[in-house]
Design a protein around this nucleic acid. Structure first.
Length: 206
DNA sequence: GACCAGGCACATC
DNA sequence: GATGTGCATGGT
């Protein structure tokens, strides 16, 4: 919590995860797997231009054409399949209705998502937190790097261990989890990269 | 021309 | 359970 307060004091609210709709956030969560957000934005933009950035639009597209639209996000063939699989799940279980999905108990939904091929823990948690406003903490490469570099966790720590570290010590508040993770990403992107020695890192020594 | 970026599945031991 | 590999574009 001290780290959170320090980061918030340094950078203020980040208003994070760009995306006009929950579905857009979910698509972004899959496309950004091991990929820079800039490349994902271009792919999202293409889908938008074609009016296909909605469950029906993706559902009707064939993998080939979908792959060429999302080419800029890398791994485009496998990601086209993953989007198709996810949207297939959305229609199969929830009739293609995000609102219906949102009404599901979220820890049970999390298990369902993890069962979908192409959705791992980070993607599932991003969908839940940033797409559906559920109180779950998202761990990503930035989070892991920052925690291990400051000696808060060991390098080999698992996803669950890192997630529990936050969730065991913080109130389960969606807004807090959202903001906290966003601040960690901001720190990772804008500070750690330029200062690998951590001299100017605001959370040094906390 | 390396190296990296908001992972995941799958094979193998 | 741990470790290794394929997937692919675009920026530095």
């Amino acid at each position: 919590m001290n780290i959170y307060r320090t980061l918030y004091g340094a950078y203020g609210p980040r208003h994070w995860w760009p995306g006009e709709t929950p579905f857009e956030v979910m698509v972004g969560a899959i496309l950004t797997q091991n990929t820079s957000w800039k490349n994902v934005e271009k792919a999202i933009q293409k889908l938008k231009e074609k009016g296909l950035l909605n469950p029906k639009g993706i559902h009707r597209l064939k993998p080939g054409p979908l792959a060429s639209l999302i080419r800029s996000s890398g791994y485009y063939r496998i990601k086209a399949e993953r989007l198709k699989t996810f949207v297939g799940f959305l229609f199969e279980q929830y009739g293609g209705d995000i609102k219906k999905m949102k009404r599901r108990k979220f820890m049970e939904l999390r298990e369902e998502l993890l069962g979908v091929n192409g959705i791992g823990p980070e993607t599932a948690d991003s969908i839940l937190l940033y797409g559906l406003q559920k109180p779950i903490f998202v761990v990503d490469a930035y989070t892991k790097r920052i925690l291990s570099r400051h000696g808060i966790i060991s390098e080999g720590a698992s996803y669950g261990e890192m997630q529990n570290l936050f969730m065991d010590h913080l109130p389960h508040d969606e807004k807090l989890f959202n903001e906290y993770h966003a601040l960690l990403v901001h720190l990772g992107k804008n500070v750690c990269k330029k200062n690998p020695e951590c001299d100017i890192c605001p959370i040094k020594g906390i």
